[in-house]
Amino acid sequence: MSLLAFNDVHALYGRARILNGVTFDVDAGERVALVGRNGVGKTTVVNTLCGVTRIGQGHVEIRGRTIKDLRGYTAAQNGIAIVMQGRGILPNLTVEENLLLGTATGRKGPWSLEKVQDLFPILRERRANPGLALSGGQQQMLAIGRALMANPDLLILDEPSEGLAPVVVDELAALLVRLGEDGIGILLIEQNISLIHRVAQRFYVLSKGAVAESGSLQNVTRDELERHIAI
C-alpha cells in the first residue's frame, strides 16, 4: 500500500485545468523525485494535496484511503509534512516557535525539539531570533526541522534547492538520503538534476500537467534525465 498516491488527478484553479491526469505514488521509506520545468504543474501537486486547487477528476489516496475533502491540514494530520516552495517561514515567530508549530498534530516519533536542534545546531543558537533573520540555507534548515518535528512518514519538499549555495545543496542531499534511510519517505519536487540524482531512487517527469516519463534513477544518466525534462 502506498503512503501517497495520485490517481489520474485532474486539478483546476477556477476554470483553468492545471493537472491533466497525474498518476504517481510513493511508498514508505522510498525516495521519489517529481521533476519538470517551470510551469508544468509541480507545485500544483502540492496545492492539490492541500486543497488549494480543486480536483475535477481522479482522486488522492493516503495509505490506501481515498481522501475526498482535501484541506490545508489533511496531509499533516495524515503524517505527510510539506516543506513548501519559498520555505513558509513565519516572520513574526521566533526560530523556536516556528519549530514548535511543527508539533501541532501531536504525532509521536523520534523527532523532538532537542533532536532537531542537535541536527541543526544553528537553530538552537538562534532560537530566539525571528525566523526571517536567518540566511537562506538556515531558513531551509528551519523549514525541514519544522517538518521533522511533525514526525512524518512522508516528507514532501518543493524546490528545496532554490536560492541555496552549491555547498548547502550538497548538505541537503546528504540529509535527505539519511532521512530516507531512517525510514521517512521523501517526495522531492525539483528541477536541480544533481540533487535529484543524488537523493531519489525513482522519478516521475511532469510535462503539461501529466506524467510524461517515469522509472528508476539507477537506469538513467543525468544527461538522459535532463533530456526527459527538456521535452
Partner: peptide, 16 residues
C-alpha cells in the same frame, strides 16, 4: 499568531 501571519502555512502544519 501563526495563522494571523499566514493561514495557509499554519494550516499545512496540521492546524484547522
Amino acid at each position: 499568531r501563526a495563522a494571523s501571519t499566514d493561514a495557509r502555512v499554519t494550516s499545512m502544519q496540521g492546524i484547522n
